Amino acid sequence: MDVNWNIIGVVAILVLILVVLTIRKNLKEKKKLENLLNNDFKKAEKKDVDADDSANEK
C-alpha cells in the first residue's frame, strides 16, 4: 500500500488554514462582544433625592 504524501500534505495545509481563519474570526467576535457588553448599559436615573446621599451639600 503506497501512501500519497502530496495529497496528505495538501489536506494538512488546508486544515491548518481553516484552523487559523477560525481562530482569527473568533477573536474578532470576542472583541466585538466584549465591547458591546462593556458599553451597552444605561445609568440608572435617580428620581428621588436621598438626604443621606447628598455628599456635595454642606
Results as ranks from 00 to 15, higher is better:
W5V: 10
N56S: 03
R24Y: 14
M1Y: 07
L16I: 11
A51M: 09
N6S: 07
K30Y: 13
E29P: 05
K31W: 12
N6G: 06
E34N: 12
K58W: 02
F41H: 10
D48I: 11
L27I: 13
I17R: 03
K32A: 10
K42W: 08
V19G: 04
G9I: 03
V49R: 02
K58S: 02
K28Q: 15
K46V: 08
E45C: 08
G9D: 07
K46E: 14
L21S: 08
E34V: 09
D50W: 00
E34R: 14
A44H: 11
L21Q: 08
L16W: 04
K58M: 02
L27H: 11
V20A: 11
R24E: 12
E34M: 12
I7K: 14
V49Y: 00
D40K: 13
L16G: 04
K58H: 02
D50C: 03
D50G: 03
I23R: 01
L27A: 12
K28T: 10
E34H: 12
G9L: 05
D53Q: 02
E34G: 08
V10I: 03
D53F: 00
N6E: 14
W5C: 10
L18Q: 04
I13G: 01
D2I: 10
D53N: 02
F41P: 03
D50K: 06
D52C: 03
N4C: 04
S54V: 03
T22D: 05
N35F: 13
D52Q: 05
A12W: 00
K58C: 01
K46I: 08
T22F: 05
A51T: 15
D40N: 14
V19R: 05
E29L: 13
D53M: 00
D52K: 06
D53I: 00
L21F: 11
